[in-house]
């Protein structure tokens, strides 16, 4: 008597004797969860702003009303004092945290080994590599990296979970990205804004995008989030805004609706 599984059972063939055919139990553990929230970055001529709401959810539960998503990278101590790079992560919070810690360690090690600060460009490439190294078990996060480039201009890099990245003027990520991004296209990159009287129909001239002053950008960020809070249940509670300039990083927390 030969079973399908290859291990034959050679004993008395009583009524209750049967072989175990390979019934493999399904693996039902899912290693990810979506902790909601949204982040947003905008650059200016001499600054970059990274912002995020502070709500953390799982399903319809609010885990906490205060879980910051924007981190200082390469700081000297636990508070992030002395950092020159900002990272925001939104998606699966445990992965986000692991990613933040990895990148922070990398930037610190760079400083110890080379005796100089890691440039944002180098850090951006390194972050892409870190994400791609886990291509087949990704960090389930949308990351945005911000800082100042070699000329002191604001820079911002946005990533997908497997490390594809691009330098941009502005980017929204997370659960309300689809609500915020079109607003940013219009208000930062002046999409669909035309110069009045510049022509008829298709000859109308597009309004040219140029770096905005800091006050304007801060107001756009606040407006984007207050609007997202109205229409997205996973966004709310508080707004964390981190502004990086040549003088360092300023961090501001302002309340958002808690409903």
């Amino acid at each position: 008597m030969v079973s399908l599984m290859g291990h034959s059972y050679m004993g008395d063939t009583g009524t209750f004797a049967h072989t175990t055919t390979g019934q493999v139990k399904e693996h039902s553990f899912y290693p990810y969860t979506d902790n909601g929230g949204s982040t947003l970055g905008i650059t200016g001529s001499d600054f970059a702003i990274l912002a995020g709401d502070t709500r953390s959810v799982s399903g319809f539960n609010i885990n906490t009303r205060f879980a910051p998503k924007v981190f200082k990278i390469g700081g000297d101590d636990e508070t992030g004092e002395g950092a020159h790079i900002l990272l925001s992560v939104v998606g699966f919070a445990a992965d986000g945290n692991a990613l933040k810690e990895r990148l922070d360690a990398v930037v610190k090690m760079y400083k110890y080994q080379h005796g100089k600060r890691m440039s944002v460009r180098a850090c951006a490439q390194r972050l892409s590599t870190i994400l791609y190294q886990k291509r087949f078990f990704p960090y389930y996060v949308h990351a945005i990296l911000a800082g100042l480039d070699e000329e002191g201009k604001g820079v911002l890099y946005s990533y997908d979970p497997v490390g594809s990245y691009e330098r941009e003027q502005c980017r929204a990520a997370g659960s309300a990205a689809s609500l915020i991004m079109p607003f940013l296209d219009n208000q930062v990159n002046f999409k669909n804004q035309y110069i009045p009287g510049s022509g008829e129909g298709h000859a109308l001239e597009q309004k040219k995008a140029e770096p905005l002053p800091r006050e304007t950008v801060e107001q756009i960020v606040r407006d984007a989030f207050t609007s997202a809070v109205e229409r997205h249940i996973e966004v709310g509670d508080g707004l964390q805004m981190a502004i990086i300039t040549e003088r360092g990083i300023e961090e501001v927390f302002t309340p958002l609706k808690k409903d």
Binding site: D12, G14, T15, F16, A17
Partner: peptide, 23 residues
């Protein structure tokens, strides 16, 4: 054993796929 057959030792096998807690 003479009626029901002896114990099927394949139940005790230690090889095969590694199983983890799935609940």
């Amino acid at each position: 054993n003479d009626i029901y057959g002896s114990y099927n030792p394949s139940y005790l096998k230690t090889s095969g796929p590694i199983t983890h807690t799935s609940s």
